[in-house]
Amino acid sequence: MSGLSLRRIGALALRYLYLLRRSWIRIIELAYWPTVQMILWGFITRYLAGHSDVLGQTAGLLLSGVLLWDILFRSQLGVSVVFFEELHARNLAQLFVSPLRPIELILALMSISLVRTLIGVGVAVALALPFYDYNLFALGLPLVGFFLNLVLMGWTIGLLVSALVLHHGMGAESIAWAVIFALAPLCGIYYPIATLPYWLQPLAWTLPASHVFEGMRAVLLDHAFRLDYFLYALLLNSIYLSLGIKTFLAAVHQARERGSLLQSSE
């Protein structure tokens, strides 16, 4: 990755920050769904806590799940939706005739995804404290590992969806929203992977998020940080993310062959 320019990555990140800065509606939109989800699951938790031994002991189980899930979801959208903005703006050709390299575009998308995720989930995390007396940071240091693995997985899905849209056009845009919800039941956000049908469990274990949510339950229920879950998720993420980057770069190469960068909004 020689010749990477932080200046160019920063320039593109600045373009997205300008957009955010100009529109308070965008900032509210970033925080809106994570906050609504947190409020909803907070009430569900409060109700179920009186009827469930598990929730009675660990009321934060569902809230931790929903907030961590939003880290994954927001980081995916942070890559794919921001990339779609370039397509909508018919700006992709301008970017690709500039000295910006495709890998620098990827890094810029990742950095703005991080900012968007921190804003979106950060507001929900902050509001969970006065609303439900729940502090996500009570997970302690393992939270850093959970965050890292979820963001990496979100970036991978974001890049794969962006590559798909680059190849098939904006008609495939709805996949950005749909794909992650197809994975949600397999990730064990609110229940252990063992709850899944036997034949689905091996598939679930191929997802880094499954290891994160199992790890989260280990911290909350057993007060133990499971290094094996963390390392396995990291290993899977390193494989998937490199595949995601290669797929995106291949889609750019193919777009150069097909001439679709010039008509990328159509």
């Binding site: 320019s5 200046r7 160019r8 920063g10 320039a11 593109l12 600045l14 373009r15 300008y18 957009l19 100009r22 529109s23 903005e85 703006a89 018919r90 700006n91 050709a93 301008q94 970017l95 005739v97 500039s98 000295p99 910006l100 010039l262």
Partner: peptide
């Protein structure tokens, strides 16, 4: 090099100065 075409746009919501600043930085 550089390029201009009426068929390729710049981001609509950014101001002129923001657009030019971003591209100035991209071009070093």
């Amino acid at each position: 090099m550089n390029f201009s075409s009426p068929y390729v746009d710049l981001p609509q919501r950014l101001t002129v100065v923001e657009n030019l600043t971003v591209y100035a930085r991209l071009y070093g």
